[in-house]
Design a protein around this nucleic acid. Sequence first.
DNA 1: CATGGTCAAGTGGCA
DNA 2: TGCCACTTGACCATG
Length: 309
Amino acid sequence: MNLGYACINMSLSKNLPRGQKKVTTNRSMIKRTYLQKGVAYASELSLKNCEDLEKIIEWNEQNNIKFFRMSSELFPWASEHGIKALPDYERIAEVLHRAGNKAKQYGQRLSFHPGPFNVLTSNKENVVLNTIKDLSIHGEVMDLLDQPRTPYAKINIHVGATYGDKPAALARFCENFHRLPESVKTRLTVENDDRASMYSTRELVEKVHSRIGIPVVHDLHHHTFCPGGLSAEDAIGLAVKTWGDVKPVIHYSQSRAEEQGDPSIMAKAHSDSYWLPVETYGYDVDVMLESKRKELSLFKMRELLGQKG
DNA sequence: CATGGTCAAGTGGCA
DNA sequence: TGCCACTTGACCATG
């Protein structure tokens, strides 16, 4: 079992000497700045983000971490101009090629989890078009990283919405799936939701995987809010079977409200760290840890599991 | 240099 | 109605 963490490395930016820039792949800008500075500045930020992604991959290797979720903010405003339009495209492609091949050489799994604005269920054509655009960029970056076109390099999203009519929403999801480019279709996965009214792992397996064949990511924390009538063990069992030859991924987090002893915090909010080891019921899976303290809580989880670093 | 208000996109739940 | 929470805090103007 490989443990992974998401998007941000705290260690590389901690206790920096004066003047030294922090290592981050989330450089962004507000709309006003984008309108003022345009593609040139977007390119500058994108290149720096990609260079820092390579640094994080190196750091992960030094710390024996084999699973990392990349930020969806690597390319700020890319949905407006595309990646190929960036003045630094050649250099960016070079950096990503090198970074991705290092990840492969180190046996590191890379993934994406595009944001909640990606709604393939929408009945608004414009929302679907924006979703296709955003997902396509994720697929393009995976290609530039030389990652396999399989769910090993997964691009994971939620079904997104019900609009009070799940069958119709799921039908639109499956139809719109076929409008995605191969770079996305071959890597796309769906994750269970954290609200009872939304989609459980069981529904995703029965209504999405069965129709379009994409694997289901089972989030253990979400499952407690939307169990779909299944135990955690049974739900994992169902999800794991959707992955074929590829090692399945599950998500794990704990409740922030419980961690902080503050019932006013929404139960579904993620904790800073962990106090319970993840239960995988004997399945051979990779576990994406979703906690605020990132790789620091990954180390905590290693202790809880008795794993060696 | 530190701080705090503000920030592209969609949806649903809660005060 | 408006905020929060999702994938992840970071940007930017002001003092």
